[in-house]
């Protein structure tokens, strides 16, 4: 990079020792930039895709080149500076093309990105503001709407049959048994890792301390919602209110 520089004598650090001033008519370039700006705004108004792309990005490139060359004086700069900047851009391009097969595409050899496909199909929902200001104002309501989205996506992944064939025992063994145990004894395989230990539904102490509302709340919003262990996840995204009621019914069968 620096090998060609002959520097037998130390250079003076003069502020502008190589280039006093460049004969650039800055005003002319400024006007040209403004004209290009106007074109880049008007072009897309025609609504033709290729015109939009050329006027938007082609002109952005031209404008950027003008600024870089004339305002930043890169035109007069040493070559290795240009190289350094181009190489950094090339690495960004490398990153883009290396990642595109996995992230930009939504399916490939032996994999499908269900969630992304679902999100394309779902499209953009109108903002909460369109339906009623209060929904947007209300933070809680917003969270809930997003969790509603989750359900749709999960539904796509697992296909409708799962949702149609909801059964509380299946849901319990798929979701809860990991920690709470297949028979509600709080002795599932995940229990060993947890502190505090997951609740055992087979003890009377447990049933003395809860109400049906609190159980629904914990399943829906997680243990933290009732001041219990944060390790208990919120399942409100996965199960509807009705389904949660059924799960609670099933859990009650463990009651001693």
């Amino acid at each position: 990079m620096t090998e060609h520089i002959d520097q037998t004598a130390p250079h003076d650090a003069g502020e502008h020792h190589d280039d006093g001033h460049h004969d650039v008519n800055y005003a002319k370039i400024y006007v040209a930039l403004l004209v290009l700006l106007v074109i880049s705004i008007l072009g897309p108004e025609l609504g033709i895709t290729w015109v939009t792309l050329i006027t938007a990005f082609g002109i952005a490139l031209v404008k950027a080149t003008m600024v870089i060359n004339n305002f930043m004086h890169l035109k007069w700069e040493k070559n290795f500076i240009k190289w350094a900047l181009v190489v950094s851009l090339l690495f960004v391009a490398l990153f883009f093309f290396g990642v595109a097969p996995d992230v930009m595409k939504h399916d490939g050899l032996r994999w499908v990105n269900d969630a992304a496909i679902a999100s394309v199909e779902r499209g953009i929902e109108p903002p909460h503001g369109e339906e009623g200001e209060h929904a947007a104002e209300d933070g809680e309501g917003e969270d809930h709407a997003e969790e509603g989205d989750d359900t749709t996506v999960e539904g796509e992944g697992a296909t409708e049959t799962v949702a149609a064939a909801f059964s509380a025992p299946d849901a319990y063994s798929a979701t809860c048994a990991t920690c709470h145990g297949p028979n509600g004894g709080g002795d599932g395989p995940g229990a060993a890792a947890l502190d505090p230990q997951p609740a055992s539904f087979a003890t009377t102490e447990f049933w003395d301390g809860v109400t049906r509302e609190s159980m629904v709340n914990v399943i829906q919003n997680g243990g933290a919602a009732e001041g219990l262990s944060a390790a208990m996840p919120a399942w409100g995204a996965l199960y509807s209110d009705d389904e949660i009621q059924q799960i609670v019914d099933y859990v009650e069968t463990f009651q001693p």
């Binding site: 992230v103 996506v153 999960e154």
Partner: peptide, 23 residues
């Protein structure tokens, strides 16, 4: 801020982080 850059349920992609990290 509860954005969804890496959350598949909201149009994000967890694989993207792996690329960013290992790049």
């Amino acid at each position: 801020l509860n954005t969804g850059f890496y959350d598949p349920a909201r149009g994000g992609d967890p694989i993207l982080w792996q690329h960013l990290f290992w790049f």
